[in-house]
């Protein structure tokens, strides 16, 4: 048992959202925040820290070590060390599911697939490439085209009874396909489910998967129905940590704790 007052901070500055997680010496989550990363990563990271400290009812001085991660990992003023988001997601997920797993992280701008062995060692990783297809950005673009608020997508997909399958794997082509389906009188909820389906399909194409699959990231945090669909497509149970969007930040915080111990 460490000093109960000591805190460790993990900061995951993603291209779309910044996440901060504070943990204590027992790896308990004491405070966290998720904000749009915006254009000033440093400011956002500061703001997220403040919110997290408020939640933890703690002063900044109690943070013994901070590890930052994500695209803006080098822009965090109070960070002591950086790690890639791949390492942090792996660390965070293995904490919740300490076994051989394949992690699927659907982020705002990219997807990651990370394979761990039963000791938590990384066997391989892949990040999606070149285009927005299958990421949060794809859903954002489509919600704008359909003129539906992003937060309504999940409930719409869930009531679909006759999903429209979208064939293309390019965001621009998918956009055209969506318009065509609207013209042909297809129901919005069926199109939205089709969008979810295509996000999962892009993931399936990226790699092979081990027995246990863990989904993380903002997209599944806000669209839990996607997990239900993934279960069917993968034909297996899908594991999801309590705060799927925070896994990277949580992992970074564990790294922070280990750095102090090491």
């Amino acid at each position: 048992m460490g000093d109960p007052l000591t805190l460790f901070a993990g900061i995951d500055v993603g291209a779309s959202r910044t996440k901060v997680a504070l943990i204590d010496s027992n790896k308990r989550l004491t405070g966290y925040a998720v904000e749009k990363s915006g254009v000033d990563f440093s400011k956002t990271a500061e703001r997220c820290l403040k919110i997290s400290l408020n939640m933890a009812d703690a002063e900044k001085e109690r943070i013994k070590y901070a590890v930052s991660s994500g695209y803006g990992r080098k822009n965090v003023p109070y960070s002591n060390e950086t790690k890639t988001e791949i390492a942090c997601h792996a660390k965070g997920c293995f904490h919740f599911f300490p076994e051989a797993i394949t992690i699927v992280d659907i982020g705002g701008q990219d997807n990651k697939i990370i394979k761990l062995d039963d000791k938590g060692h990384r066997i391989s990783f892949k990040m999606n490439r070149k285009c927005a297809a299958g990421t949060g950005a794809f859903l954002e673009e489509m919600s704008a085209r359909l003129d539906i608020p992003l937060e309504d997508l999940n409930d719409l997909a869930a009531i679909s009874t006759n999903m429209v399958k979208l064939g293309s794997y390019c965001t621009v082509f998918s956009g055209t396909e969506v318009l065509e389906n609207i013209r042909n009188g297809k129901r919005i909820e069926d199109i939205v489910k089709g969008l979810f389906y295509s996000v999962i399909k892009r993931i399936v194409e990226m790699d092979s998967f081990s027995d246990k699959v863990v989904f993380t990231g903002g997209v599944v945090e806000h669209n839990p129905y996607m997990i239900e669909m993934a279960k069917e497509i993968f034909n297996k149970d899908i594991l999801v940590p309590e705060h799927p969007q925070l896994t990277g930040a949580f992992g970074a915080a564990i790294y922070a704790m280990e750095s102090v111990k090491a």
């Binding site: 890639t84 988001e85 791949i86 990219d110 060692h121 990384r122 391989s124 990783f125």
Partner: peptide, 15 residues
């Protein structure tokens, strides 16, 4: 992306 991939790869080798 290149940078993150390369850094993550070296982390993997290190770990």
């Amino acid at each position: 992306q290149t940078k993150t991939n390369v850094e993550a790869f070296i982390e993997q080798l290190e770990e």
